[in-house]
Simulated assay, not measured.
Amino acid sequence: MGMGPASNESKNVVIAVMGVTGSGKSTFIQTASGQDVEVGHTLHACTQKLSVYEFEHEGYNVTLIDTPGFNDTFRTDADILKEIAQWLEFTYTKGFRLSGIIYLHRIADVRMEGSALRNLKMFRKLCGDEPLKNVLLATTFWEKVDSEIGSKRENELVSVPEFWGDMVEYGSQVVRFTGTARSALEIITQFFGRATVTLKIQEELVNEGKKLVDTAAGSSLNEELLALQKKHSDELKQVEKDMREAIADKDEQLKKILEKEQRRLDRQLQRFQDEQDQLRADRRNQMRALDQEWESRIRQMQEDAERQRILEKRVNEEQMALQRAEIEGLKQAQRRNRS
């Protein structure tokens, strides 16, 4: 079941699944698709670390994109934003359009944690205002919380503008994923028949030609990095001052503690600088590499299709030859019987 650009096939539904790490993205996708592994098609040419799942439901070709959250233990926010932005930019230039986004949140969480708020803020910047009407805000892990408590938390999410309230005002809808295939598919079918959407970051990167750092999402992240950079720089200055005093006082124990803290702050400052460099990096080489990979995969698919066509033709010819031989055999038998 191959998939082409949305402008050509209205029965194609492409949905990005977002949320913090551990919000249930993979579980939702696997429950909906019934798959444990990725299924190959042309969109794989530009997913890199994003996972793609494709299946059919009620006559629609459904593609679910599993995206990383902005709270990964081993990856920076800049790295994750760059990856998501690159995928959104590249697929947009190839004519693929999102039907919408499912944003997942653990209803079992007692409060909206800092990482979840940061992820939500970045998500909001990625989308812009108009696309929010194609966003479903889905709560997960209902089996881990009392239904009454869960309902109160859900109401809080909707009533607080900084949480989901603002997005609901722009047309986002709140749904519940209860862990069953039926629940997952009911959520997905809400995108059937909807017009596709262009996210703000796609407009900024492709139509306006902005650098990632100049987009709403990139600018927001860069401001956070600058604030953290200043905070750590101030802390480093204090550590250096304390170090001079420790050396003057010949306090070796304090000196070792301060040296360790100095190294930690130096590493953090370098990481912040690296993230800022990622946001400012020229994307042309990466886009060219994606283009080459895309073309290579398309050629491979075409070659596979041609091989399949030749194989089917050969099988058909062999079957026809067998049928002709059987018919000839019957005719010969009939002639012998008559004689």
Rank of each mutant, 00 (worst) to 15 (best):
E203P: 11
E186Y: 07
G193Q: 00
F123M: 11
P161V: 07
A138V: 00
K133M: 15
G100V: 10
F123I: 01
N207T: 05
Q173A: 12
H105R: 02
L126Y: 15
N134W: 04
L136C: 00
F163W: 06
R106L: 00
S219Q: 06
D166S: 14
D109M: 06
V158A: 12
L212G: 05
E186A: 03
A116F: 01
F192D: 04
R124E: 00
I187D: 05
R97F: 06
Y170E: 01
R153L: 00
K152Y: 12
F163R: 02
V174H: 15
L157S: 05
V213G: 01
V145D: 02
L137T: 03
G209V: 08
R124W: 13
V145M: 10
S183D: 07
V135T: 06
S172K: 09
S219L: 05
E143S: 06
W164R: 07
E162L: 06
R194C: 04
E113D: 12
S99Q: 04
S115M: 09
E208C: 07
K211F: 09
P161Y: 09
V168K: 12
I101C: 13
A181C: 10
Y103P: 00
R194S: 06
D214F: 13
L98R: 13
E148R: 14
L136V: 02
R194I: 03
M122Y: 08
I101Y: 01
H105V: 08
M122I: 08
S115G: 12
I107G: 10
P131N: 07
E156L: 14
F163A: 09
T215F: 10
G150C: 07
L185S: 10
K121H: 12
E143C: 00
R118C: 14
K211Y: 04
S115W: 11
K200M: 15
F163N: 05
S172E: 05
S159M: 14
K133R: 14
L120N: 08
L212P: 11
I201H: 14
V135L: 06
L137S: 07
E204S: 02
A138R: 01
G165E: 04
T140K: 03
G165H: 13
Q173F: 03
V158D: 05
G165V: 04
F163T: 04
L117T: 01
L132A: 05
T178L: 15
K152H: 12
Q190T: 07
M112Q: 08
F163P: 04
G193L: 10
I107H: 01
R124K: 14
V213H: 11
S183G: 03
D129I: 06
H105T: 09
A116S: 12
A216T: 10
E162M: 10
R118D: 11
K121G: 08
V160A: 14
G179N: 08
A138M: 05
F177E: 01
R111G: 01
V213E: 13
F141I: 00
R176Y: 09
